[in-house]
Simulated assay, not measured.
Amino acid sequence: MNLKSRKRLSLLVLLVLMPLYVVVAVTLMNWLDARFGRQHILVEVAIYVVLGILWALPFKKVFLGVGKEE
């Protein structure tokens, strides 16, 4: 994949897919809260950290080298 298409794909990921992922993550946390009750703050932070890392793993190759000049 050339640099120009990676830049376009990275914009698509950041502007469309990332907000959708945030909505899914918050919905998941609300569901967990309704189902099991409020968790300890450290458990919630750990879940948010894991969810924050998981979104980037499939797109690692897309973001590599995007800041380089052509």
Rank of each mutant, 00 (worst) to 15 (best):
Q39H: 09
A25D: 11
I53S: 00
L42Y: 01
G52V: 03
W55H: 06
L14T: 13
I53L: 03
S5C: 14
S10M: 12
E69A: 03
Q39D: 10
A56K: 00
F59A: 03
V16P: 06
Y48D: 04
A25L: 06
F63R: 08
K60Y: 00
M1E: 13
L64W: 09
K61Q: 04
I41V: 07
F36H: 10
V26E: 06
V26S: 07
E70W: 10
N30K: 10
E44K: 05
L11T: 14
K60N: 01
P58H: 00
K7D: 15
E44Y: 01
L12M: 14
V23P: 12
A34H: 04
N30V: 07
V49I: 08
W55K: 05
W31G: 09
H40S: 10
L32V: 09
V13G: 06
A56Y: 00
I53T: 03
S10C: 14
R35I: 06
I53D: 00
K61P: 02
E69Q: 05
V43D: 05
P58L: 00
L28H: 04
I53H: 00
V62R: 02
V16G: 04
W55G: 04
L11M: 14
F63V: 04
P19E: 12
V62H: 02
W55Y: 05
V13I: 13
F36C: 12
V23R: 12
W55F: 04
D33P: 01
N2A: 12
F59D: 01
A46T: 09
V45F: 04
E44D: 08
F63T: 07
A56G: 03
L54D: 00
V45H: 02
A46F: 04
L32M: 08
R38P: 09
M1Q: 12
V23W: 08
L12R: 15
T27N: 10
L57W: 00
L20P: 12
L15G: 13
V66R: 08
M29I: 07
V24S: 11
L64Y: 11
L9K: 15
L14H: 09
M18I: 10
V43P: 03
K4Y: 11
L15H: 12
K61W: 01
L14D: 09
P19A: 13
V66M: 06
V49R: 03
H40R: 11
A46C: 06
V50M: 05
L32R: 08
A34Q: 05
K7W: 12
A34V: 07
I53A: 00
G67V: 06
F63P: 08
F63L: 01
V62D: 03
F63S: 06
S10E: 12
S10I: 12
L11D: 15
M1I: 12
Y21K: 11
F59S: 04
E44Q: 06
V66W: 02
I41C: 03
V26D: 06
F36K: 08
A56S: 01
V23A: 14
L51E: 04
V50W: 01
V16I: 10
R6S: 15
L32E: 08
V13T: 10
L57I: 03
I53V: 08
N30H: 08
K4R: 15
I47Q: 01
S10H: 11
I47G: 01
V13P: 02
K7A: 15
F36S: 13
V45M: 05
R8Y: 10
L17K: 09
D33I: 05
L54E: 00
Q39P: 09
M18Y: 10
G65N: 11
N30C: 08
L14Y: 07
V49N: 02
L28W: 01
K68Q: 14
I47N: 02
